[in-house]
Design a protein around this nucleic acid. Structure first.
Length: 129
DNA sequence: TCTGTAAAGGCCATTACATCA
DNA sequence: AGTGATGTAATGGCCTTTACA
């Protein structure tokens, strides 16, 4: 899979994920049920749900989600290509992964925080060694 | 040109929750 | 089944940059 920034000046993204489609799949395989559950939990809340939450409705705030392997993998691939996202890329990724843009943003932020420095250090270490 | 200001985005520290041993 | 450790999603605050009047 790859997310290609076709042109850094124009903000288009090409996302192709073998075995992963943003559209719901009816032929979910063996790992199916548990994974499907995760996807359901992780899916972007409908505008109605969103509205309820944002208006402080009686519904409890969303529990912390766990990203699926596919979601993580896709995010990881994007991160490898670019450690930061422009708004368009964020939007596209969010749409593709059925997450909120804020979640994409948070993932990249945490990713940079956890491994960014490590890899920076590692690369320079290898380079000079 | 400068200057003040609001909006947006990034980073950091921290919290809170899910999972595993 | 209960518990502590660990990993990580999420939040809030602060800072910098940018656009605009």
């Amino acid at each position: 899979m790859a997310i290609l920034t076709e042109n850094s000046s124009n903000l288009d993204l090409t996302i192709s994920t073998p075995g992963f489609s943003s559209s719901p799949r009816s032929d979910e395989g063996s790992s199916g049920e548990r994974e499907q559950l995760k996807l359901d939990m992780n899916r972007l809340p409908s505008s109605h749900e969103d509205e309820e939450l944002s208006h402080g409705g009686s519904a409890p705030p969303c529990k912390k989600l766990r990203l699926t392997k596919e979601q993580s993998r896709l995010l990881e691939d994007s991160f490898r290509q670019n450690h930061t996202l422009n708004p368009k890329q964020k939007e596209t990724l969010a749409e593709h992964l059925m997450l909120r843009p804020r979640q994409i943003e948070v993932w990249f932020q945490n990713r940079r925080a956890r491994y960014g420095f490590f890899f920076f250090f590692l690369i320079h270490f290898l380079h000079y060694w």
